[in-house]
Design a protein around this nucleic acid. Sequence first.
DNA 1: CGATTATGCTCGTGAGGCGAACATAATTGA
DNA 2: TCAATTATGTTCGCCTCACGAGCATAATCG
Lengths: 385, 385
Amino acid sequence: MLDVLRHVHLHPETTRAELARDLGLSRGSATEIVARLRALGLVEETAAEPTGTRGRPTRAVRRHDRGPVVAAVDVSYESWRLAVAHVGGEFEHLRLERHRGQGAEEVLSRISEALHEARTAFGTRLRAIGVSVSGTVSGSRLVESATLGWRDVDVAARLRVAPLPVVLGNDATMAGVAEARRGAATGADVALHIAIEVGVGGVVLEHGRAAVGSTGGGGEFGHLPFGDPDRPCPCGARGCWDLEVDGRALARILGDPPPAAPRSAADAVLRRAGEGDPAARAALEQVARNLGRGIGGLVNALDPRIVTLSGVAASIFDLAGDSVRTAYRSGLMRFRRHDPPPLIRAAFPQDGSLRGAAELAFDTVLSEAGLDSWRTDVRPAPEPG
Amino acid sequence: MLDVLRHVHLHPETTRAELARDLGLSRGSATEIVARLRALGLVEETAAEPTGTRGRPTRAVRRHDRGPVVAAVDVSYESWRLAVAHVGGEFEHLRLERHRGQGAEEVLSRISEALHEARTAFGTRLRAIGVSVSGTVSGSRLVESATLGWRDVDVAARLRVAPLPVVLGNDATMAGVAEARRGAATGADVALHIAIEVGVGGVVLEHGRAAVGSTGGGGEFGHLPFGDPDRPCPCGARGCWDLEVDGRALARILGDPPPAAPRSAADAVLRRAGEGDPAARAALEQVARNLGRGIGGLVNALDPRIVTLSGVAASIFDLAGDSVRTAYRSGLMRFRRHDPPPLIRAAFPQDGSLRGAAELAFDTVLSEAGLDSWRTDVRPAPEPG
DNA sequence: CGATTATGCTCGTGAGGCGAACATAATTGA
DNA sequence: TCAATTATGTTCGCCTCACGAGCATAATCG
């Protein structure tokens, strides 16, 4: 039953026949399970597109249009976004607000209000909340965010709405989830996602599941010491890769002072490089090599099938793909070079983390417990006795 | 049923009552399942140790002494070993042979013979073969082994015995599995194992499952570019961590020529350092810092609960623990420092990879398919019709 | 317009776990 | 010493769920 519902979520345009084939179910079981899901208001059946082949036409199985939804929140440098996602991954963007100059408390209050509004609007259809934040996550807390200037905030607790589970994750992790499940790394057994905003984040995904470590703080690849061992990093360590590949690196190579907003600074330098500015171009090439070399090391260590790039990493790859690739290949162990995992631009450069947050929130809905609670909400348990 | 059998495997001294409690089974189900497992010759029941508490005494559930076994092979620098493991993890070392001067073909022939002998001795009780090799693994092949001097050998194919599945893995991966399931990292949700023999190997384990990447070649942490970016590595890349922490690093720091046998060279230097030789001590301290710094970076990136060390890494940690720890802590992101994952000596310094190979081989036995095939071997299917 | 084909539906079957009622074997305590 | 207490084992009716055979249905093919 769960398998079927998950399949509908991942393949929204599916049919009864496909469900039976892909999940190895007998046609009888498919009938029964889909009937149960329909009774629960989770899926609907409609006539399928005519295929022109022989045989009785199968029926399309789609999400019920009053089925469960999740809220997804993405808090990034200058703004936060709220969306609602349906079974099948369909998205409704609900809200986008700038938060320049606001503190963590204020921002979280605004978001919390918006979530409560969503709860009011969708009622019990709203089942879970996924939150992506730009910063280091540990458990339910945002430990530190250079981007936001927040420190040690219990984001999940602040955004809790009544009984709904809240799933918190780093933005790069979330974006990686979206790529692995519906984006450029769909179907890859092991995928590596690399995102540069301020510093480098990322995540390893096994069959779409993020390896987030014991506290959810995994994927901080930017704090691997790939760089100059003497250069201090704001994180407290030295030689972090972070400092060699983002806007700070570009500024340093150009002899500029450290930028206040490394992401925008990076975009500016890359734009100049694209327009032919030779100094900017040289800085870009250097950073491209640093990026490629680091990715090579990570591929050696993690053995992914594919590497997806987003944020500044994608821009660098667009503008200096050859330099990235060359450094990447020479950073690989020799035996990997004849068939290296491809470097691919992310499929969701804009809203990957929002989509990933929705996916992880849906994981709690598409679970034994989530289904049970949906059942009791749809058809409240009769009074015992 | 599988859950129960796995529980018996992981907790060999268990009881009926404990099974029901730990797996959330009703007593009725426990009765039925254990009866089925007994009928299949997989477990036996005996009187349990008297506990002195009230109530009817529970019954001990142990492996059947004619139950399934797996063969575990470990091919390391100078020798190979063959052991047989039982449900519950009990070990019988069967064979230890030196293979100095022999080529891959010859060594594999000898091992294959020994495996066939084991098959003859144990008959259908032998269900699977786990093989640990010192070198880089990809799929069923050993891609390259500096230690053994082998290149691109299909080890799994060479060691196949009749219908038995063969599981191949890198020695550090296998040792990590043993640590995570029965050793120093037992119970950790995420564990990082670091082994130094020639270069650095390792593995991340999530709930005892090894993250081996898309081809099984993961865990080559030694080829992350933590080192001098200009120093070429035999792997083809530059700046590999490998070159900063093993016997080659110690020799280089001491001004000695590159050792032919880095593992023994490392042991020799460490011995001298332990005896007070100041040059050896200085080299040790340097390597200890390189090790600690790299582990710090890996902990940043992978967020394990615990780090286990084996091989030369364990020796370095014994002799220069403070240097390792200091470099480790200063390589950590600041927020991790107040409660960093502990660095622990491996529980199985001698035979971790052999044990891990047995564990992974047992994974194929303690599976739906493995159980089915055991069923047909115990009680052959009646002729249809 | 019947033959062919793929799919949907119904229903008997069997596996497997639950939990209530009862049986059993230990300790406790009067 | 022996009944009460307690934890566990055993039996059995029940429920859920998927299977798969046999039949029904709706399309294309010839």
